[in-house]
Design a protein around this nucleic acid. Structure first.
Lengths: 231, 231
DNA sequence: GTCTACTGTATTGTCGACAATCCTGACGAC
DNA sequence: GTCGTCAGGATTGTCGACAATACAGTAGAC
């Protein structure tokens, strides 16, 4: 299930490498398309190439890295069509999840999520942006979890990892952030009224808006992402 | 995109191991829960453990194997709730895909798929069951591809791999097979009429039926799957 | 007979080395 | 100048070995 807030120290190298690379890939701290040098990274993580490659294989099947035989692994490129596809699928999954949650979730669970979101919204002004993104992701994930479908959550977790950067840029726009947070609250209101259909529709338009913003951002601002390299 | 019918000889060991293990895992030719001995499999595939482990990592993230630190990889267990979750998500994705396909697909593409399915249906009586399952999977995948959303197809491919066995048992029931094939044809009719909503609804009920049958099969017949071991 | 402690074996985790392949840059033909 | 060729170095692909851990089977206490 993997609560977003829980964290455990990975004891084995594969897990360590996985966490480290995943964090970098999610936030695009690697230049898109950049080839990953195995010996260099292995040295930096103080391990040999074997566990590193195992971790890289996992990340590649998750779509966070790309792999070409005899050329190794590289950071995925950011593609507008890929982002659009991911947002579309995400909307399908989340809307269906909301409908299911309206039927299956206990009232207490909905209230818990509502309380969580109120707290996040209240401290919004003083919360750093990266944390806000995490809270946003957690909200959507917890909502999906209320549908009682573990596979849906898994898939959304994967999608989240791949659109994290876009999401961040979205929320950096204060107007959009306010809108977005209000939409979350609106979804919860409908769910608490038992209106799964309404919640689903609102969620869908919420995501459509975000996707549209994302498309603009990507068209205009790819340069920024390519520039933002930590290495 | 990975057309279901195309096949290329993998040159590197990782790919070879991946294909081999995936085929076995998909068809449950490994006993559920069975621990996979790395040295033994490596010997059988005539390679060392390193590329084998890389392949296993990929399969684990796809949900076809499970991994426990210091206990290695094992064949996933068949879980009724997991199957139910997968069918639910699958229905969401395919229904949404059908709606999108009605808007985006060219008429020629729809007719092509229709022709494909007519051919499959015509030779149904003389086609071995395992092939029929493959054709069924291909139909659903091609339909999803008509939505123009590559990620949707990817996710459905993953789901297909994980429910392959259940699907097969479903189609082994001649009555259900006939029904199922007719439902496919019905979906295509609606799509050709431009009725995306109708196609989506029919698809959804088609999958709900299959899921229900699957649930029964799993409840009653887990023994069969556990017995069917090739190793 | 049941439980526990122990020990030898089987299995996984990680490493460093070498082979196979790719990439860069220099050089020369035209 | 452009293109192709060809070293030489860098990088990936795979291997076998060893360390760390888990497991099974035995012996002993009760």
């Amino acid at each position: 299930m993997s609560r977003p807030s829980e964290a455990k120290r990975p004891t084995n190298s594969v897990e360590r490498a996985y966490e480290a690379l995943r964090a970098m890939a999610v936030r695009f701290e690697l230049k898109p398309g950049e080839r990953l040098n195995e010996v260099e990274i292995a040295k930096r993580l103080a391990m040999s190439r074997a566990p590193l490659r195992e971790a890289m294989n996992r990340l590649a099947t998750e779509g966070l890295l790309t792999f070409v035989p005899n050329q190794g692994f590289s950071c995925r490129k950011l593609s507008a069509s890929e982002i659009a596809s991911l947002y579309e699928v995400r909307a399908d999954l989340e809307a269906a999840g909301a409908r299911a949650a309206a039927l299956r979730a206990r009232r207490g669970e909905l209230e818990e999520l509502d309380a969580y979101w109120s707290k996040v919204a209240a401290s919004q002004a003083t919360t750093p942006i990266e944390t806000l993104v995490a809270r946003d992701e957690e909200f959507h994930l917890r909502l999906a979890a209320l549908s009682g479908n573990r596979e849906r959550v898994r898939m959304l977790e994967n999608i989240n990892a791949r659109i994290h950067f876009v999401r961040r840029i979205n929320l950096e726009n204060p107007a959009r952030l306010r809108e977005s947070f209000a939409e979350h609250a609106g979804v919860l209101v409908r769910l608490l009224q038992g209106d799964g259909e309404g919640a689903a529709e609102l969620l869908r338009s919420h995501l459509a808006l975000s996707a549209e913003e994302a498309a603009v951002v990507i068209r205009e601002g790819l340069a920024r992402i390519y520039a933002e390299s930590v290495a």
